[in-house]
Each structure stands twice: as C-alpha cells, then as structure tokens.
Design a protein around this nucleic acid. Structure first.
Lengths: 226, 226
DNA sequence: GTCGGCCAGTTTGTCGACAATCCTGACGAC
DNA sequence: GTCGTCAGGATTGTCGACAAACTGGCCGAC
C-alpha cells in the first residue's frame, strides 16, 4: 500500500476542505478531478472519496454526469446556517447552566475574560479563530459531542463570512462587549439573560452578514474573473 | 458509462443507508466492501464512495487500514442526538410562530388533527413514519432548509430507536396527546406554551429511550449472534 | 444573422489489478 | 495452559485504463 504514516484520502479531504472553507476556488465552479489529483500527487480515486465526504458535509455539490462543484455562496444558506447555529448554541447555553460544575464554569469565564483583555492586540485572523473557539468551548461545557460536531460543521461553512463580518473594527468591538455580558450572565447563572444576550449577539451578526455577503459575492467574482 | 437511468453511487448510498438506519447489520461490525459490491452487482469503487458519504453522515465509522464499520448503538450518542433535535425543533417552532402565514398554519393544524383522529387504525411502521413527518413538516413551516437537512440526518440516526420507543401502545397514546396539545398551542400562537409542550414531549421520549436502548442493545446482539 | 445539429476533445463513471496491510489460527517455547 | 511468533489467506488502498457522457465550437440550413 503506497501509504505513508497517514492516510491519503484524509490528506485529500483536509486539503480540499481548507481550500473550500476559505473559498480559494470560485463558488459554483467545477472541480476538475484529474487536476486536483495531479496537484496532490495522487490518483483520482482518493480524490473522489474525499469529495464524496465533502458532499455530505455540504462543502461541495454533486451533479451526476457533470461532477463536483464548489458550494455556492448564497445569502439564504448563510443566514439559515446562522439561525441553526443560534438554535444549537442556545440549547448548549441552557444545558451548561444546569450541568456544568462551578469550578469548570469559573475556569471558562476567567480564561475568556483574560482573552478579552488582550484582544485589542490581536490580528484579524487570530480574532476570528478566537471568536470561534469562544463559542465552541462554551458549547463544549454542555457536554454533548453530537451538538459539537454539528456546530463544527456549521462553523466550517460560515467561517469565511464570519471573517468578513469581523473585519470591521467596530463590529468586532461590539462582539467583544457582547461576549463580556454573556460571561457575566453565565457566572450569575442567569439563563434568561444569557440566552437573550446570545440571541442578540447572533441576531446582530446575522443582520450584518446578510448585507455583507452580497458585497462579498461581487468581490469574489471580480477577483476570480481577473 | 455503464449507468442506467440513475447513478450507481447514489444507488449504493441509498441501499446502504437504508440497511444502516434499520440496523440490518450488527452494530460495530465490519462492512466488507467486496461482499457489498457483489451484493449490489457493482465494483468496489462506488461502494467506497457511498461509504465515505455515510461516514460524513455519521452512519458508519472508518478506521484507516481496517475499513468501514457499522455505527455503534451508544446510549450517549442517542440521547445527545435527541437533545440536538430538541434544540432544532424549538428553534423551528419559535420561528414558525413568527413567520408562518395564517392560512399555511391552519392547513398544517387541520391536516394533522385529521391524522390524529385516524391514527388508532395505523400499523406501527406507519405510526413511526407519521410521527417523523409531523415533526419534519412542523420544522418545514419555519422555512429554513439547512435546519431541515440537519434534522433529516438526525432522524436517520435515531429512527431505529424511535421505532422501539413507539412500540409500547401507551407511549404512543401519550405521544399523540402531546401532539394534540402542541397543535392547540400553535393555533393559539402561544409560543411559550408550545415550546414547553414540545420540550416535555421530547424530554419524555429521551428518558424512556435511555432505558430502552440498553435492552434493545442486548436484543440486537442476541439476534445477530444466532 | 440565428438556430439547431454534429463532431472532436475533455471529463466523469466504473472496473479489474496489484501491492501493502491486517487478521486468523496453528505451532512451538516456556 | 498461556503467551508470543509466524505463515497464509483475506481485505483494504491505490492506481491506470477504458467506455460513456458531457462540453464547446464549427458548419450548414433557413
């Protein structure tokens, strides 16, 4: 078996996913299997297997007889995913306030308060990672691994847009403030307040994202046309 | 291309998924690619592609060098999925009460009240289908296709257990009553009551399922051992 | 000038082959 | 009796090949 320490289809899967998450390929464009295979120095078989996994992940679409296509960047898909994310995070938040141990919860709050304090010195890329980690770690406190998996999948699918959303400094400042009040509600174990804060936090992002995606769309297309 | 009217990998995907959903194969057992290929009269390539999709769906697990395995039936996975389902359905319920048109909503309520009326004459298999459709159609009224996709995936993964849960006639009677009060809260557009009813409905199922899965586990194993 | 059909090149769909790895069970040492 | 070892067979991982379908552009009819 021509296999090094790590599996070939996994390599293909990760490399492709990274490209698709970042929209390094033009949305809606066809993915040429042979080309990708040559790029990654492997045959088409593992590429196709990886693409099939990505199809189930919602990262590529598949048309029988025509092949695989980069997912399109659609406004409704993005806002739908934001809403689903809200559902899951609210569920996680309510649960963690009931089940998380006091110590665990305090640790979480302290860690992220410290993070907030020095976030002004962070680069944009790190800010997005930090924001995503904050939300994921919060959800992790609820102790439901399935919910985490779905959230991770959603994050992959909206990461590109999240980055755009946080590009504006004032939006990021707001987001940080919202995180701070969320942390406050969490230590106070005030479920109602926490859920409300989180809902507003995500609702605000969704609204802005809806507007921003449109301009991002045109930007991508003109970039790729060049 | 040796392809009839319909795509081969899709055929494999659907056939395999149906078997896995129903646990027609022993949980945790290895899936022999050649055997499946012979069964479905195709080569291993499309089988592997279908299996990769099912991996992303959470229907099979994959161990490099060892192959694909039927998902295990784990109590925590099932209860986690029930909780995620609750998150999503609550989100859908809250949304649909805000966005669904009066006429659409009345149509939905009427249809399912009629269904409830004649549910006593239904067979178990139909009851499960009907229950699942009720919840899916409700979620569909919220008009978020991504949420629907995730819900469908969850339903596939818990359908087997749902069937077991509804096997007891008294549980099914309860479930129907809960559907009835949910419908009532929906026509009244009483979000709080509706969410509470739905939460109790699913919480009750989850509790019972937790107990039932254990016995189901032993049943499956002894069946398959024979 | 426009529409439709045809043809060559490209890309996908599926297969069988072969090498690498894993599993089974038998055998022997202790 | 138990444990480690080691063939032999079974199974996966990857590849290249070839047939079927699709794509885009050319040409002629109208």
């Amino acid at each position: 078996m021509t296999r090094g320490t790590v599996n070939t289809v996994d390599t293909a899967y990760e490399r492709l996913r990274d490209k698709l998450v970042a929209f390094d390929v033009k949305p809606g464009s066809r993915l040429n299997e042979s080309e990708i295979a040559a790029d990654l120095s492997m045959s088409r078989a593992p590429i196709r297997e990886a693409l099939n996994r990505l199809t189930a992940d919602g990262m590529v679409s598949f048309e029988p007889g025509r092949g695989f296509f980069c997912r399109r960047l659609s406004v409704s898909e993005i806002t739908d995913l934001y809403d689903v994310r809200l559902d899951l995070e609210i569920g996680a938040l309510k649960t963690l306030l009931q089940v998380a141990a006091e110590a665990e919860l305090n640790l979480f709050v302290e860690k992220w308060r410290a993070d907030l304090a020095q976030s002004e010195r962070m680069k944009l890329g790190d800010l997005v990672v930090s924001d995503e980690e904050f939300h994921l770690e919060m959800a992790a406190l609820a102790g439901n691994s399935q919910r985490l998996k779905y959230l991770r999948n959603i994050n992959d699918r909206i990461r590109f847009v999240r980055k755009i959303n946080l590009e504006s400094p004032e939006r990021y400042g707001e987001a940080l403030e919202e995180h701070a009040s969320l942390l406050q509600a969490i230590v106070a174990r005030d479920a109602e307040k926490a859920v409300e804060t989180l809902s507003n936090h995500l609702a605000r992002s969704t609204d802005e994202v809806r507007q921003q995606v449109q301009s991002a769309l045109t930007r991508i297309y003109s970039d790729e046309m060049a």
